[in-house]
Design a protein around this nucleic acid. Structure first.
Lengths: 336, 336
DNA sequence: GTGAAAGCGCTAACAT
DNA sequence: ATGTTAGCGCTTTCAC
């Protein structure tokens, strides 16, 4: 816990020179730099972030705002962010926002402000106008992953296209009775995701000449959510669809488990496609539209670093590519 | 972003009084306190943590060191920590440590020090002696969840007892050919967990008069890990066990999926017990030894707050209770 | 109960 | 290339 002053004294230079030598910048002779570095190492010196932040106004710290931690998509994003951040020498402060409005307000009005984060990454959070203002008032780079934030940078996949791609695959196999199992609007995730995946599904169906009918069922974005909805929508043999487009792999896996529980063969009697590329997809032979949340996390950090380094808050929107990975969970329908 | 000075001026008091009024402590008249509070609210004042930290040496920030984020146990612990921390007005800075020794060293020698965290919580990380020294050198409260750290406070379940409980349940049903599917020693999780769960299993087996044989198979602590190990150990009908004690619910679920894939009826032909109480356990009717990682996270924070408030670094060890939740995944063996 | 003043450890002008 | 100086915004003696 030695101070810069001690390092300077030990190296026989002034605090200013020591600071310059250690920060890498400015005009310092190679000899001095080496000497200061040696002293710092010997004394185990690590600069106090509080002191540095106080004077520079920067904290080398990025806030990540997320509604979930252990769901696959969110965990992957956070890991991607963490990897990129540690490479850049930044810390990650985690803020979990839930439904409770009081807690949410505390995060936005108090925690984010006082921590003086240099930037904020939001992961699929549906923000209220007040929350957006609070974020904008920070005057710092903000990037929204998954769900964009009005007027701010974003990283996303084309959710409409993802869902359309999945649907078109099933249509091309000859399915006509297809159900979309997607996000419950009540979830505090960005509702655009839910709406857009449903829209992509309906677009593809409409283009193929199918009229919208009883084509949607809501599920929580988890395996358990897909399972319970799956039991419900697959329970009645007469109304059962021959194919399902699930809004996430977790839902898709839950649906497959429900089907098996009901004695329905996948893919013989039911074809399933998911959107995500979850680790478990392979185990179930699940056909997926591939998105890579980890890359989204890393890209968010790149965007932020670019913004910090340039000093500009220009808005950018990055849309990541999709790919359909066909596996054994889809096949042509048996009857018709 | 107004400063304390502005608040003080607005309220017609000195900076000192404003500071005292807002920090809640000290001798300030009720009238002044109210006036200062009103001014602060009106100006949207939030104290700068950098400035406060610089002078107090405390940062209202706790570091969480974990090898994983999206695995169920870890996610739950982190969520528990986060909940308790936000209640206490603290931030959570996340440090993910992986195998890469360079990255690990950076976290311990650089990140943890410079961030001036007030305390550290480690979640099931196997620490090297150097890493333990680095942590101890912080002079801050440290509590290890899951895997204890030599000489520091810990929160854990009795891993030996947990595993024994699970095994005894299967033994009491009449099983004799029981396999333990547990943690791979190569995993950078605290290896004590793996060793202890295996020890508990063998203790119970020995007590029941079974001699140690080919009784263990390693798996990654994930559903996919349990699945692939499950396929392997259940593949041969002649050597197949009639019951399995899985070191975690995720492994157990993977094993059940593998069994189903192989056409083995659970629980008719195979009984399975897991340790965790994962959300998905219910879906599989999985019998579990219940531990509550979320509670462990919260308790870790309580411990830390007690330590911070008392100013003492006394070591404490808390062991959380276990409960066997018998569900439909276990039954008496068919042959034997 | 309140104010004046010192100083936490660092960086950034400004001199030299 | 290096040193001097002046704060960053807060908390905390120490007076009153």
């Amino acid at each position: 816990m030695s101070s810069l002053a001690e390092v300077a004294r030990h190296a026989g230079v002034s605090k200013a020179t020591a600071s310059r030598a250690l920060s890498g910048a400015a005009h310092v002779s190679e000899a001095t730099r080496a000497r200061v570095a040696a002293s710092a190492a010997e004394l185990g010196f690590v600069a106090s972030t509080s002191a540095a932040s106080l004077v520079t106004g920067r904290s080398r710290n990025v806030g990540v705002v997320t509604p979930f931690i252990s769901r696959w998509f969110f965990g992957e994003v956070i890991e991607g962010v963490e990897e990129a951040l540690i490479d850049a020498g930044y810390d990650l402060t985690l803020f979990r926002v839930q439904e409770d409005p009081d807690l949410r307000q505390r995060v936005f009005d108090y925690f984010l402000v006082r921590k003086r984060v240099d930037a904020v990454i939001t992961v699929c959070v549906a923000l209220s106008p007040e929350e957006i203002s609070a974020l904008a008032a920070l005057g710092k780079p903000v990037v929204g992953i998954g769900g964009g934030i009005a007027g701010m940078s974003s990283i996303r996949i084309d959710d409409v296209a993802a869902s359309r791609l999945a649907t078109e695959h099933l249509l091309s196999l000859g399915h006509s009775h297809i159900l979309h199992v997607g996000g419950d609007q009540e979830e505090r995730m960005d509702f655009h995701v839910h709406a857009q995946r449903l829209a992509g599904f309906r677009q593809a169906m409409a283009t193929a000449g199918h009229r919208p009918g009883d084509d949607f069922a809501a599920a929580e974005f988890t395996i358990a959510g897909g399972f319970s909805t799956g039991l419900r929508v697959l329970g009645n043999p007469t109304t059962r669809p021959s194919a399902i487009v699930a809004a996430s792999d977790e839902i898709a896996i839950g649906v497959i488990l429900a089907a098996r529980q009901l004695g329905i063969q996948v893919p013989r009697d039911l074809s399933v496609v998911g959107i995500d590329d979850h680790d478990l997809a392979e185990m179930f032979g699940l056909t997926t539209v591939r998105q890579v949340p980890r890359a989204q996390g890393r890209d968010a950090v790149s965007m932020i670093m670019a913004s910090i380094n340039s000093g500009e808050l220009t808005r950018r929107d990055l849309q990541l590519p999709l790919a359909l990975r066909v596996r054994s969970s889809t096949s042509a329908p048996q009857h018709g």
